[in-house]
Amino acid sequence: MSLEFSRTVTFGQYINVNSVVHRLDARIKMLSVACVMFCTFMTRGFVSILPILAIAVLIQVTSKIPVGYTLRGYRLLLRTMLFIIPFQILFYRAPAGVQVDPYWQWWVLSISPQGISAGLYTLTRVILLYHTINMLMFTTTMIDLSDGAEILFEPLKKLRVPVNELVMTMTVALKFVPLLITELERLIRAQTARGVRFDTGGVIERTKKIVPVLIPLFVNALNRAEVLIVAMNARCYQGGEGRTKLRTMHIASTDVFALSIILLFAVSAAYIGRTFGV
């Protein structure tokens, strides 16, 4: 069990290289991501997903994020997919009107070119969605994301959705992450010194060991919450109403241009998928 969380663990994946994508307004990036994700779900096959692939390549190139770095993030994803995709292929059920000619068949299991193609299409879609979110996280800081979200969801305030309060909750959570990591590290160190081995044992034994760490973690964290409540009151926090912000965001012409291109590609992907089903 590592004792160096606070030094090794980084939360948020922002990579500080100065690129066009990094400089884009966070709101534009979030809108684009939402749009690309939605349109990806509208695609129906390898043809319609091509424009989405084009967007992914375009962002990858312009963001100056090293390709190797992006690929390294795929290790865990591929492990999951190695489990999921074979299932998809073996249990493939053709939609109405599609002719299946299996290479092999037993009970409900089969291997067919249609099944393989459907499995690969799912894999492509998963990878593209994953890539889209990752690119947002690589090129945007958490603070820009939460500021952007606050402005982006501003209209929801009219529907009495407490947007500012939601963003503030996220801010409080982000503030506590490094503090609690240090706390967790201290608890684990103290337990280790009292003879507990965290790196051994089966499910039951590990659960038994984790409980004595979790309880002080929760209890101490909730105590700290009580103090922060007083502190926020003392600093005049009264909810989102009447609050102003120091930070401002500006939409530049590059932002409009970037959004237009992405919209064009994404919508065409959705259109091809819906209309031609390929």
Partner: peptide, 22 residues
């Protein structure tokens, strides 16, 4: 640590004045 709220120095210092609606 009990009273700091934002992630960055400048944003935390601005927190109070922002609450005042300045």
């Amino acid at each position: 640590d009990d009273q700091l709220i934002a992630n960055r120095v400048i944003d935390d210092i601005a927190f109070g004045p922002e609450n005042l609606g300045l």
